[in-house]
């Protein structure tokens, strides 16, 4: 299924929200924030899509106010792959978890909490994955500064 069919399929299931293709990435569909758990559950369980293989989920940080969260899924049955993008506000980003749908989303979300500060309500044990537990700050944000971080002169 091409991304456009995905957008039409999702639009049919949730009529009062509109889904369009992300201008930056032709294989990605923008979805609204409040639909996150149901929409993923639909994509996984619906026999038209059957996205049973969770690739990864990561954040793209746009400093002033936007923090995009990109999910990527693949169906081993139909052999098609789709990325889904959710736009969050940068100050306190918060997205419901999908770790109950795919198990390997668990560590992806822990890493995003650790490196980007995105909070996932409903996640079983949300603690830092990469950094030592007593580390302050979220390193992968653009405006991150740290004495141990020597910025490379351009």
């Amino acid at each position: 299924m091409t991304p456009q069919e995905f957008a039409k399929h999702l639009g049919a299931n949730y009529p009062d929200h509109q889904f369009e293709i992300d201008p930056l990435n032709e294989n990605c569909v923008l979805i609204p924030l409040q639909l996150v758990p149901q929409c993923f559950e639909l994509l996984r369980d619906d026999d038209a899509t059957q996205m049973d293989y969770f690739d990864f989920s990561t954040c793209v940080d746009h400093p002033p106010d936007r923090l995009d969260l990109v999910y990527s899924m693949y169906s081993t049955v139909y052999k098609h792959r789709i990325q889904l993008k959710v736009v969050l506000d940068r100050q306190n980003p918060c997205v419901p978890t999908v770790s109950h749908l795919w198990v390997n989303a668990n560590w992806n979300e822990r890493e995003m909490y650790d490196l980007f500060g995105v909070f996932f309500p409903g996640h079983k044990d949300l603690r830092r994955l990469m950094m030592p537990d007593d580390w302050e700050g979220h390193p992968l944000r653009k405006d991150y500064a740290h004495p141990n971080l020597v910025v490379r002169p351009d």
């Binding site: 992300d22 990435n25 793209v60 990109v70 990527s72």
Partner: peptide, 8 residues
Amino acid sequence: PEGETYVH
């Protein structure tokens, strides 16, 4: 050019 992509 500006854009995002995923390759594996």
